[in-house]
Every structure is written in structure tokens, then in C-alpha cells.
Design a protein around this nucleic acid. Structure first.
Lengths: 147, 147
DNA sequence: CAAGCACTTTACGTTAACGTCAACCTCGTC
DNA sequence: GACGAGGTTGACGTTAACGTAAAGTGCTTG
């Protein structure tokens, strides 16, 4: 179940030249287990900018990667706004002026600091989980022996 | 600035026996850089249960630790509900029945899995930040030389 | 051609996690 | 005894990140 879109979708795609692969909104949605609504929302927030073919949105590799990064950022607790900051500046880099670039470096430093703190938080949280786990198991053992 | 409450607050506390330390809501708030409102909200959500002295809330070490854990959980993206699940079950452990304990172990496993994924996310995110960083620096160097 | 499916826009609804404001107590102190 | 610094309880406001429902477009399939 949940076929996902890895096996050729039995449409007109054979040994696709890779990189030119296109996706519909529904395909991307299944791929990442989000709803189309979410994807449209990210577009509205300036995180994606798929081409249009008539009305319909057409997504390419670049869009897919962006979505992937966006979701990863979300899992790490970044807001869509923060994610946009980095992603957009990254795109604007080649012709970016010095001020923009420095600003980008600043943001990156912030993010990195954030990640480091999260690492520490995870370390601590793990220890506490271990602790609770041990206690729970011990109590369970106790229950087993007494009954 | 931001005196925080580490130095004796010049009240009636001298060489405090540690552990019996009490806190007002405002003290805790400053300590953790949250507002009193936030702390009251956490209480309302069942995450804290300070004693009362008349009207006023009095917090002890245990409450402080709980708040600390709660905020750490938040930084890791857990919802208050999730945090409550673990914290409350932890408190109910000693006299917990087997089913409850097993349920607790389940939850812990979930949380741990979550943390592992976050670790991986952080690893990847770091690499990408490094990448963007390098590119930005290079572009900056280029700008310096040409002008 | 009618039905069904995937897509579209528009717009209002929802939830979590607080912020903000009003109106009130209760100290110590000037 | 007025006052300011903290504390208290409502109660309503706000923001982010979507969910959900309505109403329409376009293809292809029985």
C-alpha cells in the first residue's frame, strides 16, 4: 500500500533522463506525506514557485528538493518564515550584493547555533528518557516478582 | 542587566539549605526568559501544580525542574500535550500499574525515535548550511577582487 | 455524454500557544 | 493613606500552519 511514486508510474515515462522528471502536486504530496493544500500553502508563502501549464502546477527536481528542505526545517522547529529567508537568499546568491551575502552568513550562524543547542537538548533529553525507562522497567520487574 | 536570580536576592535567604528554595512566578519567569502568563498557562494545561500561599503561587525545586524539562521539550518541537504525557506518567510511576508502565515505555520509544530522526536532520541540515556558507564566502571573495 | 478523477481558486474554520487588557488584592513604605 | 511593585482571575485577541467546504475546469473512460 501507499505505493508512493518510485516505481515508474506506468505512464509515458521510460528510463527518464533523470533531472527532467516532472511531478504533479498530488505526486509530491504522497511522496512526502503531506496534503496538496500544504504544498499550495508553501507556495503562497513564497517557498515554492512551480511552473504552470495552463492552470496546473508543474514541479521539477528543484521544487522537490526545496520541499524536502522545507519539511526538514520544519521538523527541526524552524518557522516557514525562517526557512524562506535562507532558501530565498540561497537562490539570490549568484548575483547577490555584499550586504545580502553578509546578512546570509549571519543567518546561517544563527541557524547553526540553534542546531548546536538542539543537539545538547537532545543529549539531555535522551539521558532523561533513559532514566525514566530504567525506573519503569525496574518497577515492572518488581510487579512481576511479587504477584 | 538581566540580573537573573542566582545571586542571593538580598532577602532573608542566607546559605539556603538548598532544595527548600522557593520561587515566585516572576522569579521563575526571569530565570527562563518566559512571561508569567506562560507559566500560568502551563499550569492550566496540567504541566505544573505549584502550592498556594493564600492566592499566590509558590514554586519549589520540583516545579523548576519540570518547567526546565517542559521548555527543553518545546525547543525540540514537542507539543505541550506530549510533554504532559511523559511528565505525568513519570510522576504516577511508583504506584503505576503494568499497563500504564508499558504504555509509558511505548511513548518513550516513540520520543527516542523522534530524537534520532532529529539528529539525522541536524546532520543533513548542517551539511547544507556549510555548503551555502562556502558558496557565499566564495562569492564575497570574488566581489572583493574585482572591484 | 455522463461520470469520475485530479486539479484549480476563494474563503472561512480550527488549533496551539500564548499576548493583552481590565479589574482586583496585598504587601511594604514613604 | 496613597502608592507602586508584584501577584491574581477572567476574557478576549492574535499568529502560524494548515483543514475543510464550495464551486468550477479539463481529461479520459465506460
Amino acid at each position: 500500500m501507499t505505493q508512493s511514486t518510485s516505481p515508474e508510474t506506468a505512464s509515458g515515462q521510460e528510463a527518464l533522463p533523470r533531472q527532467h522528471r516532472q511531478y504533479t502536486i498530488g505526486e509530491l504530496a504522497k511522496m512526502f506525506e503531506v496534503t496538496p493544500r500544504t504544498i499550495r500553502f508553501y507556495e503562497q508563502e513564497g517557498l515554492l514557485a512551480p511552473r504552470r501549464e495552463g492552470q496546473k502546477r508543474i514541479y521539477h527536481e528543484k521544487d522537490r528538493v526545496r520541499l524536502k528542505l522545507t519539511l526538514r526545517g520544519k521538523r527541526l522547529g524552524f518557522s516557514l518564515g525562517e526557512i524562506r529567508e535562507v532558501v530565498m537568499m540561497y537562490d539570490a546568491m549568484p548575483d547577490g550584493n555584499a550586504r545580502q551575502l553578509r546578512r546570509l552568513l549571519e543567518i546561517l550562524a544563527e541557524k547553526r547555533a540553534n542546531l548546536e543547542r538542539q543537539l545538547e537538548d537532545i543529549r539531555l533529553m535522551r539521558m532523561e528518557l533513559d532514566d525514566v525507562d530504567h525506573r519503569a522497567r525496574e518497577v515492572l520487574r518488581g510487579l512481576g516478582h511479587e504477584a
